[in-house]
Design a protein around this nucleic acid. Structure first.
Ligand SMILES: [Mg+2]
Length: 237
DNA sequence: GCGACAG
DNA sequence: ATCTTGTCGC
């Protein structure tokens, strides 16, 4: 798959923050794909000992969520973890993985926030923009904001996530008796569309299928990569 | 200054 | 995110 926009990743922390402020103003919080057939999930894993990171993208076909393509990539960690700047840490290896895809997904789900971000430009917004593909943020914990009211226990119940008086996303209970996930618009997707899209790709787990399968694949890829590297060192030394 | 803080 | 085995609860 061809990457629509050329990213520049070599930025300082303050330059990255400036970029987010500039980019946030040119985002559309409306729309959303109609009856998307190809949906994708992406996730990243790390090996702290060698400053290496890994990414996986899994493409599924709706409505039955069958896997149609899987790709992985790996790279050297090039940016620290700074809350609010996750896309600059995980972006390079994620985009690298997407470039290896043959098919072009119609929507992408990320294991991170989108609009629910200090500067309203989380990883899901940033990567969706670079790929020029509608995207949704599906985080497992909160970065900014608070539920507008108490979240009911029943599965599929949701409430708005409010930050500084502004609606930034939704708190969605995907399973009864389990903690909720945090859904927010990424790129070219509205609030209700984001919630609907996530509900359409839920399986039997708390986390949506696309990101859950990407998580499993990236973990498997990381293990294989490190094993292979261990073998080479043994034969070289 | 203090506390919060995606992955 | 990662370090880590078994164990308790939905
Ligand atoms: Mg992740």
């Amino acid at each position: 798959m061809r990457i629509a926009r050329e990213p520049r990743w070599s930025l300082t922390v303050s330059e990255a923050i400036d970029l987010q402020k500039r980019m946030a103003s040119c985002l559309s919080l409306r729309g959303g794909p109609r009856n998307a057939r190809l949906v994708a999930g992406a996730d990243v894993a790390y090996d702290p000992s060698v400053q290496r990171c890994f990414a996986a993208v899994v493409v599924l076909e709706r409505p039955h969520l069958e896997v149609v393509e899987e790709v992985t990539a790996d790279a050297t960690v090039s940016f620290p973890y700074v809350p609010g700047l996750l896309s600059f840490r995980e972006g390079p290896v994620i985009v690298e993985a997407f470039s290896k895809l043959k098919v072009r997904p119609q929507v992408v789900f990320f294991d991170a926030h989108g609009y629910a971000h200090p500067r309203r430009f989380g990883l899901a917004c940033h990567i969706g923009y670079l790929l020029d593909i509608p995207s949704v943020g599906c985080a497992k914990s909160v970065l900014v904001g608070e539920p507008q009211r108490a979240l009911p226990e029943k599965a599929l119940s949701w409430v708005w996530l409010i930050d500084k008086g502004e609606r930034v996303g939704a708190v969605l209970r995907t399973q009864t008796g389990r903690r909720p996930i945090y859904v927010s618009p990424g790129y070219r997707v509205g609030f209700l569309a984001a919630i609907r899209l996530v509900s359409e790709v839920l399986g039997k787990f708390r986390v949506p299928e696309p990101t859950r399968l990407a998580d499993i694949l990236v973990e498997r890829h990381k293990r294989k990569y490190l094993q292979q590297r261990g073998v080479r060192e043994r034969l070289t030394s």
